[in-house]
Computed example of a mutant assay.
Amino acid sequence: MERKRLTYTIEEATILLERYCVYQDRCHAEVEQKLREMHIIQEGQEKIILHLLENNFLNEERFAKSFVRGKYGQKAWGRVKIKAALKLKGISERNIASGFKEIDEDVYLYNLKNLANKKYNLITESNSYQKRQKLYLFLAQKGYEQDMINDVINPYFLD
Rank of each mutant, 00 (worst) to 15 (best):
N150T: 10
G44V: 06
T9N: 04
D147H: 12
E61T: 12
N59W: 01
A13I: 02
K89A: 12
S66Q: 03
I40R: 08
Y156L: 11
L52I: 08
K65D: 01
F63S: 01
E11R: 11
A85K: 09
A64M: 12
K4I: 12
I103G: 11
K47M: 06
I15Y: 15
R36T: 11
I149S: 03
Y156H: 06
Q42E: 15
Y110D: 09
E43C: 03
K71A: 04
Y20N: 08
Q24P: 01
N150R: 10
I41R: 10
N111R: 07
F57W: 15
K81T: 10
K119R: 15
A85Y: 08
D106P: 02
I10G: 02
I41P: 08
Q146F: 14
L6P: 00
N114W: 14
R19K: 15
E102Y: 05
S66T: 09
R3K: 14
L17E: 06
C27Q: 03
L16K: 14
E37A: 09
Y120W: 06
D106E: 14
W77C: 07
E46L: 15
K34Y: 07
N55I: 02
K65Y: 02
D106M: 10
L112W: 04
I149W: 00
I123R: 02
L137Y: 10
W77A: 08
E145P: 02
M38Q: 07
M148E: 15
L6D: 14
R3S: 12
I48E: 01
Q141R: 13
V80Q: 10
Y120S: 07
K119E: 13
E46R: 12
K134F: 00
